[in-house]
Amino acid sequence: MNVSSTFRVARLIAAKDLRVEWRSRVVTNQVLPFAVLVMVLFAFALDSDAVLERVAPGLVWLATIFSVLFLVARTYAVETADGALDALRSAGVDPMGIFLGKTAALAAQLLVLEALLVSAAVILYRADPTPSGTVLLVTTALVATVGLASVGTLYGGLAAGVKGRETLLPLLLLPVVAPVLIGATRATESAFRTNGIAVSEGWPWLGLLAVFAAIFSVVGAVAFGSLIDE
């Protein structure tokens, strides 16, 4: 498989995934409301404006990571509903292209989700990013999303064909995304100036997020084929 055909397949798969979502609206109508609901429930559980303001960045990313589980499950439910993943395998479609395409589509959906969750934090938890904080926040979201989407696509593919995938996926995925949770939360704390942390203190955390994103997108692209293959 040459590079141009890999990217052609990736574009094809990503466009297909986004079109399926555009038609079915499962993520829009179910996953996004779930994520906002989690934010509201956090508010009930923590029950204090001061506490909420302090933990808002962590809650945004915790809600994101929980939602990733559903997004990954959904993106593979689309593939297994009528045996399309089998058909992709049996058609010998380049696995690296499948991985990159599904990761891109997942990332696009995640960015929408994160935008919604940050808005919820601003409205519900009184988070208040400055202009320079917003630049940091957007960069953080972009880099963290690449990492989350890669690792989600990778482990989702491993769990897609097996019994008990609903419970296996969180067990595999949640320990792996811990660095993203830590890095993105710290960077977002700076962006929100939680506890008076300066915006500039957030940028070093992007290094961690970038390393994570680089490792899992590259390893995922290479290893995806042997994980979905039987």
Partner: peptide
């Protein structure tokens, strides 16, 4: 196996389609 797959098509109990499309 990969070369075989590209030249072969299987339609089984599933059709390998995307029902929403």
């Amino acid at each position: 196996r990969d070369s075989v797959r590209r030249r072969v098509g299987l339609i089984g109990h599933t059709n390998g389609s995307y029902p929403d499309l």
